[in-house]
């Protein structure tokens, strides 16, 4: 799908420069914003299809930009952040960012995230109901899970967990999001539940649970169900 408009929000002209060239080459149109205020205005007026947002902006905090945008727009937002700023990433994701890319990043990674987010947007607010990759097939409407055609028996909790990941397929889901939607808001800090159930789930859906190919850990942030 070409011709989609991507808003690049970054104060570094050099980053703007290569992103512009790369995204054009990938068939997107680009809009530039050097600061948060400019970005808010661009989202409101130019209606971009997706936003690439650097969290370290000179005039306002990138998280504030996110918060304000999410008040009135569900435009996919991909956050650029440093690897050592885990708390910042998680906060951004919990505020409604669709995904994140760590700086420095290869263009391929950014484009993959962009594609995934744009696809969800196309699928009406990102509600995926079916998933198929590496022999695993999930249909959340029929509540069916199978591997290589053989139905898998999941406990209700395991199924709930998998369903949340399928709904956000290709995108990272933070620990908090998983815990809240599967166990409820009272259990946001019970990380051990997640570790145990993710382990059990991997044991059932992965071919080799020691080398997960489907359910990837995003260290310190959350989990991601990979698309093919």
């Amino acid at each position: 799908m070409s011709g989609e408009r991507i808003l690049i929000v970054d104060d570094e002209p050099q980053i703007q420069r290569f992103l512009k060239h790369a995204l054009h080459a990938a068939g997107y149109e680009t809009i530039e914003a050097l600061g948060g205020a400019e970005a808010l205005q661009a989202i409101a007026t130019a209606a971009p299809d997706a936003v690439v947002l650097d969290l370290g902006l000179p005039d306002m905090d990138g998280k504030d930009v996110l918060r304000q945008v999410r008040a009135w727009s569900q435009v996919p937002i991909i956050v650029l952040s440093a690897r050592d700023r885990e708390a910042e990433k998680i906060a951004a994701l919990d505020l409604g960012a669709d995904d994140y890319v760590e700086k420095p990043f290869g263009i391929g990674e950014l484009l993959a995230r962009l594609r995934s987010s744009l696809r969800h947007k196309a699928r009406d607010a990102g509600e995926a109901t079916q998933f198929e990759n590496g022999g695993l097939a999930v249909d959340t409407l029929k509540r069916l899970v199978s591997r290589d055609g053989v139905p898998l028996r999941l406990t209700p909790r395991e199924y709930d967990l998998l369903a949340v990941l399928v709904r956000h397929v290709g995108r990272v889901v933070t620990h908090r999001q998983l815990l809240t939607s599967v166990w409820g808001p009272a259990h946001v800090d019970d990380m051990q539940y997640l570790r145990v159930f993710i382990g059990q789930l991997r044991g059932k859906i992965e071919r080799d649970p020691n080398e997960p190919k489907l359910l990837r850990t995003e260290p310190g942030v959350g989990y991601r169900l990979l698309e093919n």
Binding site: Q14, R17, F18, A25, A26, P104, F105, I107, L110
Partner: peptide
């Protein structure tokens, strides 16, 4: 990180798209 991010981004763009990028874009990168 900022110069590194630029360099990594530009290099991966060049490798990913190669000829799809115009001559001008390539030299700018």
């Amino acid at each position: 990180r900022t110069p590194l991010a630029t360099i990594t981004g530009a290099v991966t763009s060049l490798r990913t798209f190669g000829p799809e990028l115009g001559e001008a874009s390539r030299s700018d990168l």
